[in-house]
């Protein structure tokens, strides 16, 4: 997968001030720092970085205990940004996310207590445990990038990225996010169990010279600043996209609506997301332009949470990813 762009030798001679090259180097540095702590989850790390570069939000699915918190902490440390975590529970109130105004008895005036949403990286654990009202408050923050308390808008420092986790289990006492709301997440990454070799490395790393069993993020160095990230987000938008690829993205998204066995297909936001993410992916890989392969690669995480299957397919045990795979195989790719 990684060799996609490497196989295309760049024809322009590298000038020193090439912003793409600089970004690529910086991102690689960030990536290497994160990988010191997060082992064997390269795919998830890349998706998180793509989401960060595309200025979007990430929905992570996977069984608990695979290092979701560690991933977010590591990114925050590597980009020297702030990090907060909210555990969503059935009794979480909207103001627990956003913050609230309170009356200060001493100088008899209203003061604002900012909630955990005022941060760079927000880990929202198990969003489907909280009732719709609270979920809505988080989704609103994600969309607006600002919080209104007492009628006063408070702007959240950028970059701002929400990494929300959702358990794959369907369980009583969970409030599934409506599909329309899920659309606000740019990407949906899955965290899988690490391979045996990675697991070995993890065990080795933790047990050697460490007390306790928590992963250490101490060795991660801050190699970038939030400002760098903002600059890189801008560079990412400058990655060039051929017209045939816009058409391809539209074809793919439309196919999700017309495909047999799909209850709801992806909305127009998905097309935007495909292009934005493909650009970010290219920047991450050190390329300069998007190819159909980039779009194909990013299509599954972009589309997975935006569509749902009909009841028949669900009973048959077909997964959304299977259908996306079929779509990618059969929707005509731009080829000459």
């Amino acid at each position: 997968m990684n060799e996609t762009n490497d196989s295309i030798p760049s024809q322009t001679t590298e000038t020193k001030a090439d912003p793409f090259q600089l970004c690529h180097q910086k991102i690689q540095a960030i990536r290497n720092q994160i990988k010191k702590a997060v082992i064997g989850q390269d795919q998830a790390v890349d998706m998180a970085l793509v989401s960060l570069l595309a200025a979007g939000h990430l929905l992570i699915e996977g069984v608990p205990g695979l290092g979701k918190t560690l991933l977010v902490k590591s990114i925050a440390k590597a980009i020297s940004g702030d990090f907060t975590r909210i555990q969503f529970t059935p009794d979480l109130m909207p103001s627990d996310v956003t913050g609230h105004a309170f009356f200060d008895q001493k100088d008899s005036s209203f003061k604002i207590r900012k909630g955990p949403a005022f941060t760079n990286l927000l880990l929202a654990d198990e969003i489907n445990r909280a009732p719709a009202k609270t979920q809505a408050s988080l989704l609103e923050v994600m969309q607006e990038q600002q919080i209104t308390i007492e009628g006063q808008p408070h702007i959240i420092d950028k970059p701002f990225m929400v990494l929300a986790t959702q358990n794959p289990l369907e369980q009583e006492g969970t409030y599934a996010l409506p599909e329309a709301e899920l659309d606000r997440f740019l990407l949906n990454a899955t965290i899988e169990y690490p391979e045996a070799s990675s697991e070995e490395a993890i065990v080795k790393m933790i047990t050697e010279g460490h007390v306790g069993d928590s992963f250490a993020t101490e060795q991660i160095e801050a190699v970038a600043s939030p400002k760098d990230i903002l600059a890189m987000q801008k560079v990412a938008t400058k990655i060039s996209v051929d017209d045939s690829l816009y058409a391809y993205a539209v074809r793919l998204v439309q196919a999700t609506r017309q495909w047999p066995g799909i209850r709801t297909g992806a909305g127009p936001r998905a097309t935007l997301a495909l292009i934005r993410c493909a650009k970010a992916l290219v920047l991450l890989r050190g390329g300069r332009f998007v190819t159909p392969d980039d779009i194909k690669q990013i299509a599954t995480p972009v589309l997975r949470h935006r569509m749902s299957l009909s009841a028949e397919l669900e009973i048959e045990g077909v997964k959304v990813t299977n259908v996306i795979h079929d779509i990618l195989e059969q929707v005509e790719a731009p080829r000459g």
Binding site: P90, E126, N167, Q171, E172
Partner: peptide, 12 residues
């Protein structure tokens, strides 16, 4: 009470 892996309690 059901305890989820994240340590929150769900009342059934």
């Amino acid at each position: 009470k059901v305890e989820t892996p994240e340590g929150i309690e769900l009342p059934l």
